[in-house]
Every structure is written in structure tokens, then in C-alpha cells.
Design a protein around this nucleic acid. Structure first.
Lengths: 342, 342
DNA sequence: CGCGTGATAGAAAAGCCTTTCTACGGGCTC
DNA sequence: GAGCCCGTAGAAAGGCTTTTCTATCACGCG
């Protein structure tokens, strides 16, 4: 049913080869012939079959982006950067939601490999267990044999032997910096609401928090570390639990801005004023950070830039195994202040 | 370089046909043969070439989603629904950001057609000019000849003659309902901050606003209608302009929740309390609506459900031209109240 | 004992485009 | 006027998998 190149050729009264050459413009074709062919293409509303083309070229013009959840603004920001940069190399980006499930992630990886994706970009924190590491390394090697470039974005390389470039976010540094900000304001009892357990990002951010406290000689109270995930809901519940347990704290540091937003609403519901009674700080500087009142002090992460960088690494000169670390910066807004006296 | 089916066949000591049959499981193969083949597949880490397969089937297992901006929570929500539902039919969703540019949108459409996408889902408001309508109709017809199903989501059909299903959002009804809510609270001077000009969604929501006012016999003051786009920035600036011009209003109705969030922050910056001095209402019930303080009164739009519905229409029994209208519902929260006396 | 039958496997064609190789005219040079 | 080269176009192969059609083998039955 779909129109083929052969039909176009017949209509234009030329050979298939000529039509192909007009379409690709990589071979001289007489002006009059060209026009006849172009007319036939228009009249039949013909588009080349990308599969037949890819079959010859072993390339598809597709960039796969595998992430946890495209509706999460963190991923959305990075994906946006990737799409923009990929489009500039006239490639089509495919976004795949793995829902944080390793099984699904691998399924997508195989699917993309089957489609001979030019590159696959894995975005976001990875599970930390050994089994996942091994499986990921195998997959990464497989990608190479299909000529698919791999870039890891916001997660460390699964291992020395795994091929692929890496765009890392300075999570530990940023987390340490914002902790420092709180300590310098005078906070000593700081609650920390983590991201999901066993994820690289969670671990790094928590480590930065602990390191900064240690640097100042502040003792970390493990009762003030509450585990959650990267959602508003988690932020709300974590703070509710802290309050219910009667914990004493003057600041809450959240795994990201969504969690911070949840924390703010829980504090408000409990009649605590932010930042007068309790300071709250987030991470990522998501658009939401300025919707929350008071506007969130947070750590800026240049999401789109990270995405662009990933594409740059994927299609740039192929030095094997480049690792780029994206710096972060504390953004002070209205949700943090010196603790109330006493 | 990539492993082919023929190589797998050679290694397993069988014919290519047999390998294909093991892989697809659609033809009896002796158990011992199957095992040999599976071993070879594992050892060579083989994945079928999706292009060669698609070349035969004239189908690709891909669903194209074309939208303005995947990082906008409105689109993200719908895309999420689409992805989930598409995955259940084991199809891969491709998200394409058109950035609201018709040129790019058409480029993606052609690209997807070239890839023999099983379906293409166009999400979000469309330009209202005749030229666009005509071009869109042509494209839609072309899709049919390639066997690609078309679904329009959150936009009306470009015309009677254009094929494809439609999932419409009851924008006018929702807008009228929330306007009614404000009028019933006692508001008479209501400012309206629109979405981008010349877009179907903008027009419909504005029409609902006007209709509801007319129903109550409230005269609409055109000075209170300010044009913007669907961003926080637009909401902020619109309200700043209204205030600077010394306009008198007791409520602001925004084209969506992001705009409403911007409006709230502009009002707060100007020392007006929400909802005591001015009520604010949004649209879409985005996650952000409950981050804003006070939590936004808004119109709930079931985004994921819309996405799922789109897939259902695309791959369900192919009645031509189904139109489904998704109802909306007012959600009253804390950003609206009766106007101050006097 | 020959042949039909069922189970399994192979051969070959098809699907659509690109690209190399070949062919054909015509103008130019000597 | 003969031989060449250039510009242009066609023929045909190649790329990878699926699927139809055919072949083989073992077995059982008449």
C-alpha cells in the first residue's frame, strides 16, 4: 500500500537508481530529470522507507534516551538538552521510560540495539548492586559491536572495563556545599531526607552531607536521616515522621527540590514557619523551586547543558571513555535563614 | 561488524530459517535444535536487526508522540500515559519535541512516517490558521497510506476530511466551570491571563470564560484580558502589567497552573495577599498546583488517562474518526475565596 | 514391503533502497 | 574523421530477516 521508490521511478519514467540519487543529492542528475522526479515524489507523496535505508547503512539516525520518568522535571530537563543537540545533528531522539526498573531498562537497551540506534544515553542514578553492574557492563559491550555509542549521564561508569562516555554531576560536592551553607548560617541539627535507597545519586549526596558536617566537626545524628524517594510525597511523609517522633532539628536538607517542596508543605501544615522556625534546602534547582513559597534555596544543576554534553561526547571525536564532571552551584533564596536564637 | 542471523545459524549448525523460527517461536522446532540455537544466540550476544524485520512486516513497533515540550508537565503527563499504554502493547514510544514550531512538527511527522511508525499521536494545541490546517490534513492522509494510525490529543481535528481519531479535552466547559466558581464566590472583576495566541486551547478556554460571565450577566472588561503563553514568566509579567496599569480586579483566572503560579508570585511581590486580596485559579491541575502556596484552585485534567485513551483509539477496532471528549472537573483548594467586602 | 503421514529443517524468494559497475551519446581534440 | 572523455542514466547486486514451499526422515499401516 505505501508508495515505493520503484513506483516513483515508473511515474517519472526513470530508473530507481535515479530517484535515489535525486533524493540523496549525492550524484549528478540532469536538471530536467531532477524536476520530473521531484514532481513524481510530490504527486505520490513519497517518503523513503527508513528501514530499507538503515539496512544498507547500518545506521538509523536515532538516539535512544533511557530514563526513569520523563515527567520528572530533572529528567525532562536533561532530555530536553539531548533532544535539542541531537536534532542539530539531524537525529531523532527516542525517550524511553524505564520506571526505574532494571528489567525494563535492559529491554529498552536491546530494543534500541535492534533498531541500530546511533547512540544510547542512559540518564539518572543506577542501582548499586553487583548484579546490575555486571549486566550493564555486558550490555554496554554488546552495544559497541552494533556500532551504537553509549553515554552515561548522571551516573558513574559501571566499571573500568565498560565502554562508553560519562557525564557526571558533582553530587557529592554540591551536597557538601549546601550543607556548608546551612552550617555557616548556624544550623547544627540538620535533618536529611534521602532519595531512593541503593542508588548512586542518593549515596553521593548523602556522602557530601556527611563529609561537610564532619569538616565542621558537627556530629551527624543518624536519627535525623530519613529515607524516601524523589517525590513530594516522600518529603511530606519524612517530615511528618520526624515531627511525630519529636526530633529536634532547625533545618531540613532534601534529596531534591520535589522532596523539599513536600517538606515545606508538611512543616507549614504543622504550624512551623519556613525559614523562621526551620530552614529547608533542596537540590537540582528545578522550575518548581521558585513556585514554592518561600522560594527554595537549592543546588543548581545545569540540566540542559548535561544533555547537550552527552550528545557532544556521543558524536564527537571518539576518544574512548571520556568522563566529564558537571559542576554545581548553591543558589540561595528564601527558604534558608539563621536558626531562631536559643 | 554486528552479528547476523546467518552467523548464528552457522555457529548452531542450522539454517537461518531455523534460527528465525526459534527466535519467533511461531513454528515447531525440535527441543535439541532449539537449545543449540539459543546457546549460539547467547554466545554471540545476538539481537535481531529491527530494520530487516520491519522491511518485511511494514511495521516497526514504534509509536511517535509529537508535542511542544516534553519538560512541560502538561505534555509530560500525557506522554506518560501514552508510554505506559504503548508498552502494554509492547511498542516503543518515541517522543519528539516540536518546540511549538509547525515546520519541525511536520519534519517529525515525515520522519516517523519514514520509520513506518505504527501510530503517531499529536499532542497539544494546534495553530489556528488555514495554511496549517491544510498542511496538517495532507500529512494526515499521507500517514494513512503508510498504515500509520493518527490520533490527535488535546486539539480538534483539522477538518472533516482529515482522517484520525481525536481525544479532546473539554476546555471550554472546564473554563466556564471555574469561572462560575469565581462568580459564585462573589467576584465580578476577574482578570484573565491567556495562553499563546492563535492556538485552539487558548481560544477554547477564553471562550468558556466569556460564556460563563455572559451566563451570569457579568460584563467582561477587555482591559482585564492579558495575553501571554503557558509559562510562569508570562503569569508574572501579566499581573505586573495589570497592576502597573492600575486595573481593578479581585480575581485572576490563568490559562494554566504555571501561569497561575507566576501570578501568585507577582501578587505576593506586590504585597497583595492570595486569596484575601485577590483570588487566583489555574487550569490543568499540574503537580505544581499543590506546591504553590496557597494551593491552587484549578481544573483537573486527567492527563495520563488522555494518553491511555489515545493509544486505545489508535490500536482499538478501527472505526474511522472516533472523537472522545475527556471531561474536566473543578478542584477547589486554597487560592480562591470570596472577595474582601467593599 | 511400499507408501502415506507427521514432524522438522532447508532453499529460496521477497521486501526496498543504495551503490558500484557498466553503458551510451555527444562534444572535443588531434 | 577517429578516438576519448565527460556527463548522465540504467542494471544488478547487496543487506538481513521472514515465510512459503519443498525436502527429508522415521514411522506406522495396509
Amino acid at each position: 500500500m505505501p508508495v515505493t521508490l520503484v513506483e516513483v521511478a515508473a511515474r517519472a519514467g526513470v530508473s530507481p537508481a535515479t530517484v535515489s540519487r535525486v533524493l540523496n543529492g549525492n550524484y549528478p542528475v540532469a536538471e530536467s530529470t531532477r524536476q520530473r522526479v521531484e514532481k513524481a515524489v510530490r504527486e505520490l507523496d513519497y517518503v523513503v522507507n527508513a528501514h530499507a535505508r538503515a539496512l544498507l547503512h547500518a545506521t538509523s539516525g536515532i538516539v535512544g534516551v533511557v530514563l526513569n520518568d520523563a515527567s520528572d522535571p530533572f529528567f525532562a530537563g536533561i532530555a530536553r538538552g539531548i533532544q535539542g543537540a541531537a536534532a542539530e545533528t539531524s537525529r531523532l531522539s527516542v525517550i524511553c521510560n524505564s520506571e526505574g526498573d532494571a528489567e525494563q531498562e535492559f529491554a529498552f537497551l536491546d530494543l534500541l540495539r535492534g533498531h541500530r540506534a546511533d547512540a544510547v544515553i542512559l540518564v539518572g542514578a543506577a542501582p548499586e548492586d553487583e548484579e546490575y553492574r555486571a549486566a550493564a557492563t555486558t550490555r554496554a559491550k554488546g552495544m559497541l559491536t552494533t556500532g551504537t555509542r553509549m553515554v552515561l549521564c548522571g551516573r558513574p561508569s559501571p566499571g573500568e572495563d565498560a565502554p562508553g562516555h560519562v557525564v557526571e554531576i558533582d553530587n557529592e560536592g554540591g551536597s557538601a556545599a549546601i550543607t556548608r551553607h546551612l552550617v555557616e548560617l548556624g544550623h547544627r541539627r540538620i535533618a536529611y531526607v534521602t532519595g531512593p535507597d541503593g542508588r548512586t545519586t542518593t549515596t553521593a549526596r548523602l556522602a557530601g552531607f556527611r563529609r561537610a558536617l564532619a569538616d565542621f566537626g558537627v556530629e551527624a545524628d543518624e536519627n535525623l536521616v530519613v529515607h524516601g524517594d524523589f517525590s513530594r510525597q516522600a518529603g511530606r511523609e519524612a517530615v511528618e515522621r520526624l515531627l511525630a517522633a519529636g526530633r529536634d532539628f532547625t533545618a531540613v536538607l532534601a534529596a531534591n527540590d520535589l522532596v523539599a517542596a513536600g517538606a515545606v508543605s508538611a512543616l507549614r501544615a504543622a504550624g512551623r514557619s519556613v525559614p523562621d522556625d526551620v530552614s529547608v534546602a533542596g537540590y537540582d534547582n528545578l522550575p518548581t523551586a521558585v513556585d514554592v513559597w518561600p522560594n527554595l534555596t537549592t543546588v543548581h544543576v545545569p540540566l540542559e547543558e548535561i544533555g547537550r554534553k552527552a550528545i557532544e561526547l556521543a558524536f564527537g571525536p571518539a576518544d574512548p571513555q571520556t568522563v566529564v564532571t558537571i559542576p554545581t552551584a548553591v543558589v540561595v533564596r528564601d527558604s534558608t535563614a539563621a536558626p531562631a536564637a536559643g
